[in-house]
Amino acid sequence: MLLGLLLICVGWHTTPGGAEVVTSFEETCPRFFFRETPPRIGLTPAHLVRICQRYRNQYRYATMYDRPNYIPLYSAYIYNPGKAKRPQNWMVEPQLVRSSLPPEMTLEEDLLKKQVTLAELEKSQAVLKDYKNLIDYNRGHLNPNSHQPNSDAKKSTFTLTNTVPQYEKLNGGSWANYEDKTMKVKTQGCKDTFAVVGAVPGNKYIAGKRVNQPSHVWSAACCYIDNNRIRSWAVIARNDKDAVEELTLGQLEGKLAELYQQNSISLFHSDCPRQ
């Protein structure tokens, strides 16, 4: 399942640049992680690109991007839902093409006007045409716009670096129910809720075998109530069925260790309860 992710990928060298494609989440955008501690998943670093997702000169969330598979491995954000309208336009990440390009996400058509060819863009990340004419799958946000507070924050989630091919019935069914209803119930009484939502690369692809179709999608949250009370919860779903399995954080970490073929995985700082 993860052979393509775990093998050394010659030619995919990441050059940090500007303020968005970064070498360290802790140094650039740590606030999106509970206790400023990013997940420890242990996959081959050469494959993964850290993005502090920036829009309108402000960091909005953090994404670990699996560039050879053209999907995010996970996005981490602070849950803070608002009522602004759902955006429509999808964006791309210039610095995945070249580190000298601007550090903010932008519309694909605008980037192609700035001496970037479609071939260069396609080599660096998923593009709009990859998600056209799909059957049974559509664009699934890891960081959903419904969990963000205002128009600009919601727009920032509409980037293809925050998107995976998700089973359409799951995206509009059980997964949407978790995002909109379960999270609302679980976060009652929370002062701050830190979320990490991810995908497990699978054996199938879309767009002429370009973009990986994850075998599973998952979500975990750590909720800070006060100095003595912290709670957590988690879910996982196969990406070909409309069903979500509720787990403890510890159970999810154990299941992901098997799926990612790792000895152990830690999604949050050790202060976050695993049971």
Rank of each mutant, 00 (worst) to 15 (best):
V116F: 14
D66I: 05
D136K: 14
L118W: 05
K83A: 15
R60E: 03
N212S: 00
F268T: 08
A199G: 06
V21L: 04
V196R: 04
Q53R: 01
L121T: 12
W233S: 04
N162R: 11
Y131E: 01
L112A: 05
H141L: 14
P38H: 07
N89C: 11
D192H: 15
C52K: 02
A76G: 11
V197Q: 08
Y79H: 00
N263H: 04
K83Y: 15
P30I: 11
I225G: 00
N203F: 14
V116I: 13
I225K: 11
C222D: 05
I41R: 08
H141Y: 13
R67V: 10
N228G: 12
Q58A: 13
R210K: 12
D242K: 03
H147M: 01
Y79M: 06
G254C: 00
L259R: 05
N239V: 10
L170A: 01
E27C: 10
Y178D: 04
E27W: 06
D240A: 02
D110L: 07
R54H: 01
P81K: 03
G82P: 01
S264Y: 03
Q148F: 08
P45T: 05
K255R: 15
Y137W: 10
F33E: 01
E27S: 12
T187S: 09
L7T: 13
K123Y: 12
Q261D: 10
L73P: 07
I225F: 11
K181C: 03
A126M: 09
E245D: 15
R40S: 15
M1G: 14
R231M: 14
Y70V: 11
T15Q: 14
T193D: 04
Q261P: 04
H13L: 13
I51P: 02
D271Q: 11
D130K: 11
L111M: 06
S156H: 14
R50S: 15
D110V: 00
E245N: 15
T37W: 02
W175E: 04
R98E: 07
T161R: 03
L128K: 13
Y167T: 04
K132L: 15
K191T: 11
K241R: 01
L118E: 14
V92Q: 07
T182Q: 10
L111A: 05
T15A: 15
Q251V: 12
Q58F: 02
Q95G: 05
R274D: 07
P39I: 03
E93F: 00
L118H: 12
L252T: 05
L3P: 00
R60L: 09
C52I: 01
H147A: 12
L2Q: 11
C223K: 02
A195D: 03
R60Y: 00
Q261T: 10
N203G: 13
R54N: 03
Q148D: 03
Q262E: 05
R229D: 12
V22L: 08
G173E: 03
I236V: 11
Y79P: 01
D240E: 06
Y74H: 08
I265M: 00
K114N: 11
N171I: 02
S75P: 05
N171D: 07
K132A: 15
